[in-house]
Amino acid sequence: MKALVDIWHRVRRSRSVLVSGGVLAGIVLVALVGPLVSPHDYLQTNFDALLQRPTASGFHLFGTDDLGRDLFVRSMLGVRITILVAVVASIVSLVIGVAYGAIAGYVGGRVDAVMMRFVDTLYALPFIFFVILLMVAFERNFLLIFVAIGAINWLDMARIVRGQTLSLREREFVDAARMTGVSTRDIIRRHIAPNLIGVVIVYVTLTIPQAILVESFLSFLGLGIQEPQTSLGALVHAGVNQMEGASWMLLIPAALLASILLCFNFLGDAMRDVFDSRSSR
């Protein structure tokens, strides 16, 4: 509890965490609340208002698309899905990757060799091809995207965590813990894991944008989210088709995507400083 209070104090002192976190929180809040208060619905088509420019009249703040659906509501829906996919995929890769990497690195020896060769084998599978196969073989399913992205991303995380653990294991405070009789499980939990946080946080904030990009890429190819559901990637895809006549259909979702990515990147950089207790002078 005290550790959390501590981190909160450090967060409050870091301007870039506050700014990027604030922008991100704002976007998420609007994405959650916006569709509820808007008079429009993401499914509702309006053939009297096809491809309308962004305007305050009729509450089409972001304009409408080629079917007359309100782009604001659809964009906010896209933001929800995009962030959800990214966060869930990152948590999947975080949990599997940290546990796997820390165990391989700390136990070492043959266990490490076998565990890491398994990772190498998975690396050899062509990822996009694998995802496309999954999408074709099964129903295009929401869950499948999480699983696919998370299942691939944890490999990087496991490698990074293992490397860090190997060097942490040689540190004297680990020997000190062994001398006092701390169990292997508690050494990993209390001494290894907290010292991994800096690296893990940075890496997670890099996987989130990566997952967003992969999801957008899949949706752009038409393999991701199924209509009438949508994601920012799918919206950009639709926007590209209308680029010449209705540039807002491309520019608005693209700008949202870019700002979310930028916020996560800034946040990652700043979080590393926050979680590094040595930098809190």
Binding site: E172, F173, D175, A176
Partner: peptide, 22 residues
């Protein structure tokens, strides 16, 4: 346990032998 309690070690690098996160 008794044996482990009975023998303790102090290291050369005082800062390195303390967990920086604790």
């Amino acid at each position: 346990t008794e044996v482990r309690r009975g023998m303790q070690l102090v290291f050369q690098d005082p800062v390195g032998s303390l967990n920086p996160q604790m």
